[in-house]
Design a protein around this nucleic acid. Structure first.
Lengths: 238, 238
DNA sequence: AAACTTGTCTTGTATATACAAGTTTTTCGG
DNA sequence: CCGAAAAACTTGTATATACAAGACAAGTTT
């Protein structure tokens, strides 16, 4: 249960849009009406609507109202910040994670650059293969600060590292910077993935931060090109 | 000149972060102090800080303050909604646009699907090649509703269609849904681009909308894989 | 020395009010 | 009946106030 009022209103409206109670191209009730029905102030309603707008659920128009957007088509926010487990659950695919290796070590110099520190902290190096429908699609290499993420096990890495970090360790993951490029696969990539003759591979490099702005994770995620799909909703910020 | 107060405060602070007056890992002045110095209410300051936070300039921490993030490294928001011209200008590369064809026609059925309409409106079909440093890197196919975007010329398409739409026609582009995939290039792709032997190509499909939520443009943008780079900043929205 | 309390700083949420600005509907004069 | 003006909506911006909640330092007690 979320205890934030505007968040609960957001969840309710978003749910109603998702399941079709509020249909595309319809106008929402006015902010004042919503304030009445939810017994909240207009500002609180506006916070909820702002979230809906940012997530592509509605379009606000001054003087007119808020129109519901067609969310059925595109909406699988591969964008944003979600773990493989969360994604796989949502999509209902038969997904499987295989931990190739898990070791604690002093940070390699090439990885150290990404953490932008002159120290040489211990890190976990986790190598995992993601299978979807029995095919080895994704090769993930994660580097996590041991000091912040203690006690990693193969079991945790098989399930979800994010769930462990948030629910067991009580840390809160806050934001990430991602870069998507296309590169030539290495010998290792060819060995570990079912590459079926492609000469390119999609590489997603992520720097992930906690809510106190400390970077705790660097990840290289290599995707088989034919299975890669990235969806984005972007507003023009003038 | 933007006349919005919170926007001006945002611009000022963002500028100070960009040019190093506010350094990474420093704390901003508290919201109340900022309210004093900018002669604004705390809520207005908070609006500005929210924007900064969303764009990856700062991290807010309850009870502590807002810390400046390191924006020097990653920040080239290829993400978001910008035109090729705006991008090229910002990066200072020697960029060139070549208009292969520009014709007004009845919408083809395969394109009609993307507009999700049963009517058969007239559209502009624009095919353009983007050169960077003398190499043909990107092949753009744009489909624009003639009714909303009248009077297209080769000259306009060479410069910037977005500038024409916004500054001449006075429309305001609002948001876009994008999808990035990797596919096999067609014969046409090979002819028009300098593909140097790659057997894959990055395809960015975009649906672009005006501020009244009408979709006015569909675009297929094909990128040479070695020159493709997509950078994203994402916050975890729990 | 360790644990707890308190005061004061910070940001987060919720509310109320006023007016600006854009859209739609109604009204009223010709 | 038509059309322009007025009224009645809508959202957008700015301000003020109150209290909740987290961080932190300085005491105070154990």
């Amino acid at each position: 249960m979320t205890k934030n009022k505007f968040r609960m209103i957001y969840d309710d409206l978003a749910g109603n849009i998702q399941n079709g109670i509020l249909k595309a191209n319809e106008l929402l009730p006015s902010e004042n009406e919503l304030a009445d029905t939810y017994k909240a102030s207009r500002e609180t309603i506006r916070k909820a609507l702002k979230l809906l707008s940012e997530h592509g659920y509605i379009q606000k128009m001054q003087g007119k109202g808020s129109v519901v957007l067609d969310v059925t088509k595109i909406n699988f926010p591969i964008s944003g910040l979600v773990s493989f487990r969360e994604l796989a659950d949502k999509m209902g695919k038969r997904a499987k994670t295989d931990v190739v290796s898990l070791e604690e070590q002093v940070i390699p110099t090439d990885i150290q650059e990404h953490f932008q520190t002159r120290e040489e902290p211990d890190i976990w190096k986790v190598v995992r293969i993601r299978e979807i429908d029995k095919e080895k699609i994704i090769l993930d290499k994660d580097y996590l600060l041991s000091s912040l993420v203690p006690g990693l096990t193969v079991d945790i890495c098989t399930r979800s590292i994010y769930a462990y970090i948030e629910q067991v360790l009580g840390l809160s993951i806050s934001f990430a910077k991602k870069e998507i490029t296309v590169e030539t696969p290495t010998e290792e990539d060819r060995e570990l993935l079912d590459l079926v003759g492609y000469d390119t591979i999609v590489v997603v490099r992520s720097h992930v931060y906690l809510d106190d702005a400390t970077m705790f994770q660097y990840t290289e995620s290599k995707h088989r090109p034919d299975k890669f799909r990235f969806v984005d909703f972007a507003r023009r910020t003038r």
